[in-house]
């Protein structure tokens, strides 16, 4: 289900990445889209729940989440957060391991950058379910660092080490 949202207000620009990941998963994995947007709502409420633009934006996002929950009545990962937690964690780890394997095999490409990047975003989304354990925390830092590093190497025509 594609989301038609108003533009992200300047105060909430940092949640834009999660909304982009949500949009990329619309039609591919409804639970991933749902929890990315849920995380974006949580973060937005922490950052700015006072300015009229932010209130309008969060309200629209919330409308969308409520609708998504109704439209995915048979999706257990959306309706039961413990299942959702496991689903997002497995999905993020799968992406992370794919990228890590490609990296260790010296196969660098935009898809590796994208996989590390998305895994990093989804490790953030896991905060929805509580504090991250040490392994996830480590993977999150590593995935984000690797995405930035390989991206920089590709851009500058350097061979990642």
């Amino acid at each position: 289900m594609a989301a038609k949202l108003p533009p992200v207000p300047p105060t909430l620009r940092s949640v834009q990445h999660y909304l982009k990941t949500a949009t990329e998963h619309d039609g591919r994995d409804a639970a991933v889209s749902y929890y990315c947007r849920l995380y974006a709502v949580q973060k937005s409420l922490q950052i700015d729940k006072k300015s009229p633009d932010a209130v309008k934006f969060i309200t629209t996002l919330m409308d969308h989440l409520e609708q998504a929950k109704k439209q995915n009545a048979d999706n257990e990962a959306i309706h039961t957060e413990t299942i959702g937690h496991a689903h997002i964690e497995q999905y993020a780890l799968k992406l992370f391991l794919y990228a890590d394997n490609e990296d260790r095999s010296s196969r660098f490409g935009k898809n590796v950058v994208k996989s590390f990047y998305t895994a990093g975003m989804l490790f953030d989304v896991l905060e929805t379910f509580g504090e991250l354990n040490d392994d996830i925390e480590k993977n999150r830092k590593y995935a984000k660092w690797k995405a930035t590093y390989i991206h920089k190497c590709i851009k500058e025509g350097l061979q990642p080490q």
Partner: peptide, 27 residues
């Protein structure tokens, strides 16, 4: 006054967003 009314309305809207999120997650 109008200002008090507006700020009460804004505060109610914020509470509403927080409780809407809580309800969504509990359903």
């Amino acid at each position: 006054s109008n200002t008090v009314g507006q700020s009460t309305a804004a505060s109610a809207e914020q509470d509403d967003l927080t409780s809407r999120l809580a309800r969504l997650r509990q359903q």
